[in-house]
Design a protein around this nucleic acid. Structure first.
Lengths: 120, 120
DNA sequence: TGCCGACTTGATAACTTCTTCAAGTCGATA
DNA sequence: TATCGACTTGAAGAAGTTATCAAGTCGGCA
C-alpha cells in the first residue's frame, strides 16, 4: 500500500537483473522444468541456483511444486514473453548503437590521431 | 564482444532498477525535458539526479544536449514505452496476486485457526 | 528405521550501488 | 575578467546483493 509505484517498478526490474534469473525465465517460457534441468542448462552451483529461484518465487513470478523427489518450476501465469521481447528489441538497438560508435572510432583513427570519445 | 547475452540483458534490467531512473524515463516519454524540470518532478537532490542521469546516459538510453545554461535530456530513440507497458501489465498481475493472497488469508482466519501459507 | 539424493536455507566475506557533500566545469552576464 | 547559476563529477561511508560452504528438510528406498 504505502509502497510508491515507482519503487515497485524499480524492484520489479531489479528482480530481473541477474543473468541466471533471466535465463531461468526464458527456459520456463517453454513450459515447466524440474530444477535438475535448470541446473544443467545454467551450469551454476545448486545452492546458487536455488537462491536465485527463491528470488523469483518471492517476487511471485514463478511457482514451485514438489513431485516426488524432484521440484518443478513454472511461470506463475504472467506473460513474461512480451516483456523479454520488448527488452530484446531495445537492447538490440543499444548494442547496434555501440557498434556504430566503434565503427566511427575506427574510421576516425584512420584519418587522424588518437581521439577518445567514450571510455567503454 | 565476450559479454554473454544473458549478462547484457541482466545489466539492462539492472539499469532500469531504480525509482528515479524509471520516473525519468516515463517523463521523457512525453518529449525532451530540461534537467530543471526533472529536478522538480522527482524532488531529489541535484547531484543525486545527475548521478542517475549519468547511468542512463552511459547505458545509451537517453541523450543530453546543452542549450545555453540548461541541459536537455531526451530518449535516445528507443521505444521504451512498450517495455514499460509490458512491465506494468506483469506488475499489475503480481500485485493483484498479492491482494488475492491477503484476501485468502483474511477469509481463512475467519473460518479456522492460524494457518500460515507464505511468510510474506 | 536409517540412509541417500535432490533441493533449500543460513551465514559470511567480496562486491556493487546509493546517498551525500565538496569541488569542478561550462555558459552567460556584469 | 570575475562571478553566478545550472549541472556534473569525485570520494567515502552506508546499505544492499551475490557466491560459497556448511547444515537442514523432505521423499523415496533398502
Amino acid at each position: 500500500m504505502a509502497v510508491p509505484l515507482y519503487q515497485a517498478k524499480a524492484e520489479f526490474f531489479r528482480m530481473l537483473g541477474h543473468p541466471v534469473r533471466i535465463r531461468v525465465l526464458e527456459l520456463l517460457q517453454d513450459g515447466p522444468r524440474p530444477v535438475r534441468d535448470l541446473l544443467v542448462a545454467t551450469g551454476v552451483e545448486p545452492s546458487s541456483l536455488s537462491q536465485q529461484l527463491a528470488v523469483l518465487r518471492r517476487a511471485g513470478i514463478v511457482r514451485a511444486t514438489r513431485e516426488g523427489g524432484t521440484v518443478v518450476y513454472e511461470l506463475a501465469g504472467s506473460d513474461v514473453a512480451e516483456l523479454l521481447r520488448a527488452a530484446r528489441r531495445i537492447l538490440a538497438e543499444l548494442l547496434a548503437g555501440q557498434e556504430d560508435l566503434l565503427a566511427e572510432l575506427r574510421d576516425a583513427e584512420m584519418g587522424s590521431g588518437t581521439r577518445s570519445r567514450r571510455s567503454a
